[in-house]
Design a protein around this nucleic acid. Structure first.
Lengths: 259, 259
DNA sequence: CTCGCCAATTGGTCTAGACCTCCGACCTTG
DNA sequence: CAAGGTCGGAGGTCTAGACCAATTGGCGAG
């Protein structure tokens, strides 16, 4: 009954249409958002189905319409519902995509969608930082750096050739770990406590040169997407610089923009 | 005085701190959002500066606190302000290094940097929306759409071939205006009061086909960057869909990422 | 039967005020 | 002088009700 963060009023959650498991201390609109999101993602509310009108649903939940609308606004922003003036509120499709490489902000559509990419390590070695690499990673020239080249495939087709550089000073011994069966990013976090949280990237369209063309299984001169990126951890230490070559015919990068 | 979309009450905009240019028909919280966003981006509100308390600011604006909070929530989401429980609301970054193509979030490095691109209009006509275009712009199939194809060059070299579509219902008569000597985006704002504020884009690396190869001055099969984008205005109306083809050897797109 | 208008329904916006929690400055106290 | 409590101001949540605008379906007029 008293499952409020703060504020006046009370949640009753009376009827059946939406019955939250009361969570003490969580704001009413967040509880409602959570419950409705669960129902949608579980499929309890079918795609395209119309929700009860706002006034009615608010009544059933024992909250004011404005409070319910706060929850609905968040669900709409998440893409779980759509609202149409004069018509009603409808369940949208559960968008399960995204996140794996959230850092990129981009979503690589081909590899994405639940398809687990196969990874083949082409090369991994400790090398010495060149002038450009040292500048990028904030190191001195000649400092030790781990280089990892991996070919990732989806559904048996090579999609991207990733060449990554990690500063050895931040990840000592990383090169000796089992990189084939464990995500590098997971290892970064679990063993070194350094996780990329910020990045800068650049994209270019280039023609495939012989070495990468062969690995990616395309003709020399085919269009590739070159994605160069550098990532920093929470304390602004550079943790990775990478040069990724995506097959043009297997890759599409999307992003949202503001202003 | 009565510059309302709908709803009760009235905006007075009394004191000086925030004085909106009243726009008939635009919701109060959107007007406030716009005005505050402008001030922040113009630098009239300095970085880190504290805004007046919500109750005070709402009073000065002649709106209720809940209405003001709607505007503040949107500004916070856009990253223009930060709010701290018990402390206040503060101006975040002015993030205004980008200009003309700000919407893209990307900075087209080659064309960017002070170089004023020359624009040549290849085609401009009123056409009818195909199925795909209608879906993208939220129109009915066959509805009128303005198509504008422009070739932009920097330092005498063609760089990008832009094909844009604008819904005629939003910009009636746009096609008859002087698009060669006036920015389309400026016209959107000054004559129609619709400015893109949000976008979704996708990038692909493709090979040049004969028509665009000739216009861009590259060989057929050369790598190009295909950038498809759709933009919405503040009221979530689609205002543009574009398909841009950049020369791969003259373009590099950079972006910042979080998380 | 068709067209157009009207009314009910639904989401969109707004209000005025209430109580809660967090934060920080200030003051009291040991 | 340091520790701790108090209190005012800030944002966070919530309400009950009002009017506006888009949509839709039914009903009446032609």
């Amino acid at each position: 009954m008293v499952d409020r963060a703060h504020g006046a009023g009370s949640i009753e959650g009376g009827l059946d249409p939406v019955r939250r498991a009361p969570v003490r201390g969580l704001a009413a609109y967040l509880q409602i958002e959570q419950e409705l999101a669960d129902r949608i993602e579980r499929g309890a509310l079918r795609l395209g189905e119309r929700l009860p009108a706002e006034r009615q649903l608010a009544g059933e939940l024992g909250v004011s319409r404005m409070t319910l609308r706060q929850a609905l606004a968040r669900l709409e922003h998440r893409g779980l519902i759509t609202r149409a003036h004069g018509r009603g509120t409808f369940v949208a499709e559960p968008k399960l995509l995204q996140h794996a490489n959230v850092l990129r902000g981009f979503f690589h559509e081909t590899v994405g969608q639940g398809v687990v990419p196969a990874t083949r390590t082409i090369e991994h070695a400790a090398v010495y930082a060149t002038r450009a690499l040292a500048a990028t990673l904030g190191l001195r020239i000649g400092e030790e750096v781990y280089k990892v080249v991996r070919l990732r495939s989806a559904r048996g087709t090579p999609v991207v050739l990733e060449t990554s550089f990690f500063p050895a000073s931040v990840f000592p011994g990383l090169i000796d770990l089992d990189l084939d069966h464990e995500s590098i990013y997971r290892l970064m976090e679990s063993r070194y406590g350094a996780r990329p949280v910020r990045g800068q990237q650049a994209m270019e369209s280039i023609a495939a040169e012989p070495p990468e063309a062969e690995l990616l299984g395309v003709a020399v001169g085919s269009p590739l997407m070159l994605l160069e990126r550098t990532a920093w951890d929470m304390t602004d230490r550079p943790v990775e610089h990478a040069r990724d070559l995506y097959r043009g015919d297997r890759s599409r990068f999307t992003s949202e923009l503001r202003l």
